[in-house]
């Protein structure tokens, strides 16, 4: 078995706030192999961005990584000095962010912002770095890249800016790319384009891709596997096709229900009722219990543990919905389905 390029184990990230210590990420584990695409899905506030930032060692006070391990190419990042992390960021692990309009520095030219990303990690001439930047722009489909290098960010559209950011992030052929909802702010058609472009680029270099989104449909056809987050925990994980087809966790089912689908056009979306919980006031049992249509008494008192299921799947639920065959729980789950 190969070692995964990104191996996150029992990650816990806390923020000390005025309301007390908030655990934004609580015991998150996942592994991504070279060239693999993992979707990290969940509603806003579920801890996706914090997880992504933690992988780059970018959690700033009042936040901190309280426990767990993050290994990139078998090298432990948790506990590393800021200087050591600097060498990893942009080199082994890269990240792109949600809002393309604010992700590039408005007063610096594109060439400055790309060349510095190369020269932060490699001693190459300005000229060589510039050529690499130009080729990278061409690769993400930016026309006349040589001239565009001299442009400022405000001379690009949102989609083009995100392409520049992607090109910049991939300049050093990182082992891992964390993409934090990079298409959410963009037009739907451009979203799909960019996602498939990034996927193709990552496949080419063997870069492991962690694609963060609140929209399951975005990753449906593209990701290999998915981890669904709720209130700082991964509540369900597994191969993306299986999870979408037969979700085990009621929350995942709810997310799928709220995905607009072609065959249900005109039908209002089944929204998950209720609000995302306040992390400082989590109920003692299952954090999803107040919103869950399947909750039973144990749900309100006992926190569900991570339970593995066949086919490389796992979930945290006392009343799993559609358990893959050959599991004793399957029948029980069906009975409970209202």
């Amino acid at each position: 078995m190969t070692t995964p390029v990104l191996d996150v184990r029992d990650l816990q990230v806390t923020f000390s706030t005025r309301e007390g210590l908030v655990t934004a990420v609580d015991g998150v584990s996942f592994r991504v192999d070279a060239g693999e695409v993992m979707g990290l899905v969940g509603e806003s506030g579920s801890g996706k961005s914090v997880t992504g930032l933690a992988v780059l060692g970018l959690i700033d006070p009042p936040g901190r990584i309280a426990a767990g391990s993050i290994k990139v190419k078998a090298t432990e990042l948790v506990g590393q000095s800021e200087k050591a992390l600097q060498k990893v960021r942009g080199k082994d692990v890269a990240m792109i962010f949600q809002d393309p309009m604010t992700t590039l520095n408005p007063v610096l030219r594109i060439d400055t912002q790309m060349i510095e990303a190369i020269r932060a990690h490699e001693q190459v001439s300005e000229k060589a770095a510039r050529e690499r930047a130009r080729d990278a722009l061409a690769k993400v489909g930016i026309p006349s890249p040589e001239e565009r290098l001299n442009a400022y960010p405000n001379q690009f559209s949102g989609g083009m800016r995100q392409r520049v950011a992607i090109a910049t992030a991939l300049l050093n052929r990182p082992a891992v790319l964390v993409a934090d909802e990079p298409t959410t702010a963009l037009d739907v058609t451009i979203q799909a384009q960019i996602l498939s472009e990034v996927q193709a680029l990552c496949a080419e270099t063997g870069t492991a891709l962690v694609w963060i989104t609140h929209d399951l449909s975005v990753i449906a056809g593209l990701a290999d596997k998915v981890a669904v987050m709720y209130a700082g925990r991964v509540v369900e994980e597994g191969p993306v096709a299986d999870v979408l087809e037969r979700p085990i966790h009621p929350y995942t089912a709810g997310l799928i229900g709220s995905v607009p689908s072609r065959n249900k056009r005109g039908v209002p979306l089944a929204q998950i009722p209720g609000m995302t919980p306040q992390l400082s006031k989590l109920p003692p049992g299952c954090p999803f219990a107040p919103r869950c249509g399947y909750s039973t008494d144990p749900c309100r008192t006992i926190r569900p543990e991570r339970t593995p299921y066949p086919g490389g799947r796992a979930a945290r639920c006392h009343n799993p919905l559609d358990v893959p065959p050959n599991t004793p729980k399957a029948d029980a789950a069906r009975e409970l389905t209202p």
Binding site: L58, Q86, V88, R89, K91, I96, A120
Partner: peptide, 9 residues
Amino acid sequence: RFARAKGLS
């Protein structure tokens, strides 16, 4: 944040 993610000093 993006500049930091690039590994700049």
